[in-house]
Design a protein around this nucleic acid. Structure first.
Lengths: 214, 214, 214, 214
DNA sequence: CATGAATGAGACTTCATTCAT
DNA sequence: TATGAATGAAGTCTCATTCAT
């Protein structure tokens, strides 16, 4: 996840795993297969988590969506698993079987889950009628994108970086989009899960002290 | 952009350029430099496009944002330039100098532009007061994400793919998010640039029977 | 014998022996030693067979030679032991100690036996005086060669192979060479061990239509 | 030819060829292909030589055969090309395509040539009617076998080796076998090409000074 | 200015060998 | 005594880079 497929040497993987090069080959017949196994295992975790959440939920659909997205961020976006997004994005075209796998195991289930939640909101009269898939995309994209971003740029020391706090971005995103979903958006944005003042002082645009790599 | 840095062979680059391998080295001292030049040139194109978009605008802030995002999609998201996003994302950590460059040339200007537009909306009483950077992120992310997605998965034949129409996603995104920005969201979503029925007939019930591509 | 020294993996040897790789090393300290043991044991079998044949014989020297060569073919040429010839031939130069061993255990005893038989024929006035070693070579070579050939090419499906019947080759060889040994070759070839019509009907005109094997 | 396929390192081949490892791969895509090319080229030489000889011949069939076999020995048996026999024998089972190739390019043409000569002898009333293919085998085998033998054992220093002089073996073989072919074998063996006393003193069985390898 | 043949460092992979259990 | 997981040296092959022409 740090370097991508090609730039990662089998030897280092083995070293970090605490075994020797040869041992790796007792479990995976090739670098490609090892790679695919890494993707598969990490994705399985993703799916599993999604399904846990998908269980019965009692509150409003807004709250449910906020919950889902927030949990996704906490469990995936902030963990090492984020890298999986980067690597899949970067390598699908070189490992075509990956595409099918990812579609089946991640994209479809994820889409299904989000669509179901939005539909629930519509059915209960909470949300305006909206195109499901497209909204699901709009809901998820900024979060995954942020994860991608943090995983790649976040790891590089950059002068003048816009120091967006993921927590706040998530908040803004939910605020905005749930606001947009509501049948009759009230004057004041009540839809937020946790009430927060619009933009707390927290000074932005400060050159954040670069966190060294490694 | 097709294969990533490592999987691309100098020889093929030379071949497609219609010259010999040696000739490449007359112009670029190494594969790394060639790569950086490719990124830089493509980013310049991105910038140029950004600047074109940044010109004076008279209408409502909602319309301005819709215009900007739509234009971005048409000029970048749908063109080969999209690949630049993918490759930068995939390689920044291996080419740290790229991070600074990308931040300076793409992220900052882009953020500045969007923040200015949102601020304009707030100043003119169109938008609720919202955290600028975070909203800018929320505005841009789904579009770039879609571009990334199309560039990677879009190139792979996948059974049962969710066939999202970019045009519609863009529409839903704008609809949603601009809706959410408005000070007083009216009952009906008037904020859209081009009047369109809220949810066009095209029935989209959740577990849509997968229409195979290919 | 199937694959040669290098292409044979210890693991497969162990597997066929019904034990684990480690167990092999309890009995043989290295692949080389195991190999040498294989050769040695197979050669011992060869020798043993040679000595069985060497016993007392009463008939004509022609008949004795025919008997010996025929027996060799039946007991060695047609059995798995043939492979030993191939592998020794292929590997002597990589395992020089093998050369001495093979010379002592196979070549010398074999030569001694054949020379003795030819000398017996000369002494008894049956054979012309001929150079012993050279004739011994001429006697044995076609048989061993055929064995080699069958072990290597015989195992490969080849279109248009010349389908020589080993039995007939042996016959022709004996016929020819014993004919050539006799002091006064009679008009008709009576020297053959088992009376057979000179050239059995089976018409064999030069460019015989290749009968495919398989 | 010295070490066999597996024991030969690409690097050494390159070194002896006076080029670098990589260069070899500009001409042959793999070690296997290089190997096959070596075999092919050497065999082509074999064939070419056989066909030169196959041209018009005026003398007796005995003399023709003696000529052919003698020339083969001089042009192949004594040269480095001999190794080709060893390596083909040792590796056919690992390179099945080799079998077909060798059959087509070497065995069949060779067989055809020899059969034609024997048939010529029969037609001209020189030879007894004999089974062609089998006799061809009997004619060729001792010579190839000797070549194999010299290539492998000949290169190893062995105490008490039977020091057979190839020239003499060839002579004895021809003497014997041509003798055996003749319709009416005369009392004295006149069939020899160059008249030589049966067995000159030349003491045999002497521990020949080991010719070191390399 | 352009070529393309040659290079050789470096990476993946194999497999004989070891050794704790 | 037997196992089989682990090892790491060694070999094949790739490909960025060089340079004489």
């Amino acid at each position: 996840m740090e370097k991508g497929f090609a730039a990662t040497r089998i030897e280092e993987v083995a070293h970090r795993a605490g075994v020797s090069k040869g041992t790796l080959y007792l479990y995976y017949p090739s670098k490609e297969e090892l790679f695919k196994a890494v993707v598969r295992q990490n994705l399985s975790a993703l799916i599993a988590r999604g399904q846990e959440l998908a269980g019965a939920y009692e509150g409003s659909s807004s709250a449910l969506l906020a919950e889902l997205l927030g949990m996704y961020w906490k469990r995936v976006g902030e963990t090492a698993a984020t890298g999986i997004h980067k690597i899949v994005l970067a390598e699908v075209r070189n490992f075509p079987e990956l595409a099918q796998f990812y579609a089946d195991e991640v994209i479809l289930p994820g889409d299904r889950l989000l669509c179901a939640c939005v539909q629930r909101g519509i059915d209960r009269g909470e949300f305006r009628p909206v195109p499901l898939h497209e909204v699901a995309h709009a809901l998820m994209a900024p979060i995954i994108f942020m994860a991608l971003h943090r995983h790649s740029f976040g790891a590089c020391p950059v002068r003048g970086a816009i120091d967006v706090d993921p927590e706040r971005v998530l908040q803004a995103h939910l605020d905005l989009v749930l606001h947009g979903l509501l049948v009759r958006a009230p004057d004041a944005p009540k839809a937020r899960t946790r009430p927060r003042p619009p933009t707390p002082p927290k000074p932005q645009k400060t050159p954040k002290p670069p966190r060294g790599r490694r």
